[in-house]
Design a protein around this nucleic acid. Structure first.
Length: 556
RNA sequence: GCGCCCGUAGCUCAGCUGGAUAGAGCGUCGGACUACGAAUCCGAAGGCCACAGGUUCGAAUCCUGUCGGGCGCGCCA
C-alpha cells in the first residue's frame, strides 16, 4: 500500500525533473530494524541518469515524499542512510489501518486485479496414457496446478488442458503389450515385445480387460499373433488399455487435487484430417516444403538449428506435425497466451515448437514454454532410474499413500521448478513429520483454536490509534501486508515455490506473535484488535496453502 | 563437440531480475510450558556463495572463461 504511493510520488518527481525513467522503484523490507520498516535504494540507482550525488537526490526525494498527504499519513519519518538509502518508519496508526483494511477484504486479501488480464491456456502433465503417473509427473502436476491457482488468483483467466498422446508407435507398443499379457493369461505363448511395456501393471490391465470380454480375442490372437500393429485385436487392447489407464490417471490426479478443464485427445487430429489440413496450409504459405521425399517445416528463420520433418518419407506424420495441429487448434480458440509445462527431457524440442507457433500466430511471445527439471529418485542415497517401459518407478499413488497429499504437494512445489529435486521415498516417509507444511498448518489450527476459545461477546475489531505497539504484532502485520505483492510477483515469475516460502514466513511471524502477545484476556480493545489480526493471518495462511493445493485444517 | 538447467552451511534448499553484516528448515549443542494448542519459542556453533577474470559507487545475482553434475542434440514420442 505504501509502495504504491511512494512509486507514484517518485514517478511524478522524476517526470517533472525531466529525467529518463530509471529502474522501477523497489520498496524492500530491510533485515536490520535500525533501517526502518521499509527502505528503497532508488536514489542510488537514479544517480546515474540524473547525474547527481545519491545523497542530494535522497534529500530532494524525502522532501517530496513528506509533502504528499498519503505518504505522510503512513510514514512518520524518512531517514537518509549510507550512500543514499531512504529508510521509512511507519506511523503507529499505519498498522491499525492496515489490519483494518485487510479485515474488510475478508477472503479476498491478496487477490490481484490486472489492468490487462490475459486469457491463458495452461497445458501440463500431457503424457502417453500407457502407464501410471510417477513422481516425476507428480511434480509437474503439483507445479502446474499451483501455477493455475496462482495465475487465476493474481487476476488472469486460466483454462487448463491435458493433451493425451494416445496415438502413434508408443501406443501401439502398449496395445501389443496388453494383448500379450491377456493372451498369456489364457496360456498362449505370446511375448511382450522387446520394445514393449514390461511392468507388472500391464498384467493388471490385461486382467481387467479379461474380466470385461472373457475369451473373445483369444482365437484371433492365437491365429494372428501380435505382429500386425493395426489388427483389430491389437487395436482393441490399445484403446481399452489406455482408457483404463486414463481413468486411473484422472482419479489419481483428482485425489492429488489436480483437475483439468479439458482432456484433449490427439487421435481425432489424425483421423479427422486436421493434421493433414495444417500441413497443407503451411505448404501453401511456403512455410513448409518438400525435400528428400519428406515434408519439412521451415523453422530455422525463427531460431531453430535446422528445419524439422512434418511428414516422413514413409508418409506418416511426425509427432511434431500433430503437435502443430494441436496448437493451431489452441490458437483458433482465441487465447491471448499459451503456456506449456514440459519436462527437462523435452527441452530440445523447444525451438521448433516456438517456431511453429510463431509461424501460425505471428507472435513470438504467444507461446511460453516452462521447462521443469527432473525428480531424482534416490534409494538409500543411491540414484535410481525410472522407466515406464520397464515398470520401474515410484508412482504418484505410492507417494500419496506414503506421506499424504498435503506433505507431497508441499514438498514437490516448495523448491523452484528450475532445480532438480532429490526424492528418497524412505527418507521422505521418515521425515514427513518434519515437513514444513505442518508448521504452516499448525499456525492455522492454532488460530482456529483461539477463535473457538474466544468469549462470544468479543468481536474482531480495530479501533483507531496505537493498538499494535509490540514489534511482534508489527512484524506480523508487515508480513501480511506483503501478500498481495507476493501473489503478483510469484505469478509473474511462474514461481509458486515463493508462496511456499512466504507461507512459512507468515507462520513463523505468527508463532512469535503468539508466544509474546496474549489474545484472550487482554484489555478488551486490545483483545478485539489482536483477534482481528489473528483472523487476517488465518485467512492469508489458508489462501497461501490453497494456492499450493494444500488443506488448512481447523485442528490437527 | 553443441544447446538448456544447475553448483550457496554437514544435508535439503531460499535469496525478491544489482543493494546495507548472505538466510531458512533439518541435523548438532544449550535453554523456555501451574493462562489462548510445546507439531511452538529463544540462543549457540556452522560460509573463499565451485574457481578465475570483467562490468560499477556496489555482484551470490549481470558478462566471459575454466572445472564439476543433470538433461537434450532422430524422418522416436
Amino acid at each position: 500500500m505504501l509502495a504504491a504511493h511512494v512509486q507514484r510520488v517518485i514517478g511524478e518527481w522524476v517526470a517533472e525533473r525531466g529525467w529518463e525513467a530509471g529502474p522501477p522503484v523497489v520498496i524492500e523490507r530491510p533485515a536490520e530494524s535500525d533501517h526502518g520498516d521499509y527502505a528503497t535504494p532508488f536514489c542510488l540507482q537514479l544517480a546515474k541518469v540524473a547525474r547527481m550525488a545519491p545523497r542530494a537526490l535522497a534529500e530532494e526525494a524525502r522532501a517530496r515524499l513528506l509533502a504528499d498527504a498519503e505518504v505522510a499519513g503512513m510514514v512518520g519519518e524518512i531517514d537518509i542512510a549510507g550512500p543514499g538509502f531512504l529508510n521509512f518508519r511507519l506511523r503507529p496508526e499505519a498498522f491499525t489501518r492496515s489490519v483494518s483494511v485487510m479485515l474488510e477484504q475478508a477472503d479476498e486479501v491478496g487477490r490481484g486485479a490486472r489492468e490487462h488480464p490475459l486469457d491463458i491456456l495452461l497445458e501440463y502433465v500431457s503424457v502417453n496414457p500407457n502407464g501410471p503417473l510417477h513422481v516425476g509427473h507428480a511434480r509437474y502436476a503439483a507445479y502446474g496446478n499451483s501455477l493455475d491457482r496462482l495465475l487465476s488468483f493474481s487476476g488472469h483467466r486460466v483454462t487448463t488442458e491435458f493433451y493425451i498422446n494416445d496415438y502413434g508407435r508408443q501406443m501401439e507398443m502398449f496395445g501389443r503389450s496388453v494383448a500379450a499379457r491377456y493372451a498369456q493369461s489364457f496360456g498362449l505363448d505370446l511375448e511382450v515385445p522387446e520394445e514393449g511395456y514390461q511392468g507388472e501393471y500391464v498384467k493388471d490391465i490385461a486382467a481387467e480387460v479379461r474380466e470385461e470380454v472373457g475369451d473373445r480375442w483369444v482365437a484371433e490372437l492365437r491365429d494372428q499373433g501380435l505382429d500386425d500393429a493395426g489388427s483389430p485385436a491389437v487395436d482393441f487392447f490399445r484403446v481399452r488399455g489406455y482408457q483404463l489407464v486414463l481413468e486411473q490417471m484422472r482419479a489419481e490426479l483428482e485425489r492429488f487435487r489436480v483437475t483439468f478443464d479439458r482432456w484433449f485427445s490427439e487421435t481425432p487430429l489424425h483421423t479427422e484430417g486436421r493434421v493433414q489440413a495444417a500441413i497443407d496450409h503451411l505448404l501453401e504459405t511456403g512455410d513448409a516444403f518438400h525435400a528428400d521425399e519428406a515434408v519439412w517445416l521451415r523453422t530455422t528463420p525463427y531460431g531453430d538449428d535446422k528445419d524439422r520433418v512434418l511428414v516422413r518419407s514413409n508418409e506418416r506424420p511426425t509427432y511434431f506435425a500433430a503437435d502443430l495441429a494441436y496448437h493451431q487448434d489452441k490458437l483458433g480458440r482465441g487465447y491471448g497466451h499459451l503456456i506449456n509445462i514440459w519436462g527437462a527431457d523435452h527441452h530440445g524440442y523447444v525451438p521448433r515448437m516456438k517456431a511453429a507457433v510463431e509461424i501460425m500466430s505471428h507472435d513470438p511471445d504467444m507461446l511460453e514454454l516452462i521447462i521443469g527439471q527432473m525428480v531424482n529418485l534416490l534409494e538409500a542415497g543411491e540414484s535410481r532410474q525410472m522407466s515406464t517401459r520397464r515398470g520401474e518407478m515410484v508412482t504418484l499413488g505410492e507417494l500419496i499413500d506414503a506421506i499424504g497429499v498435503d506433505a507431497a504437494r508441499f514438498f514437490l512445489v516448495m523448491r523452484s521448478h528450475d532445480q532438480t529435486l532429490d526424492l528418497d521415498l524412505s527418507l521422505a516417509r521418515r521425515q514427513s513429520q518434519e515437513n514444513p507444511v505442518y508448521y504452516v498448518q499448525y499456525a492455522h489450527a492454532r488460530i482456529a483454536s483461539i477463535v473457538r476459545n474466544m468469549p462470544a461477546e468479543l468481536e474482531p475489531a480495530v479501533g483507531a490509534g496505537e493498538l499494535f505497539d509490540t514489534v511482534y504484532e508489527r512484524d506480523l502485520i508487515k508480513k501480511l501486508d506483503e501478500f498481495a505483492d507476493l501473489v503478483r510477483e510469484a505469478a509473474d515469475r511462474r514461481a509458486p515455490h515463493r508462496v511456499a516460502g512466504y507461507a512459512q514466513e507468515v507462520a513463523a511471524a505468527f508463532h512469535v506473535f503468539y508466544k509474546n502477545c496474549r489474545v484472550i484476556g487482554s484489555d478488551p480493545e486490545v483483545s478485539a484488535a489482536r483477534l482481528a489480526l489473528c483472523l487476517v493471518t488465518k485467512r492469508v495462511v489458508a489462501r497461501a496453502l490453497d494456492l499450493l493445493g494444500v488443506s488448512a485444517p481447523e485442528s490437527m
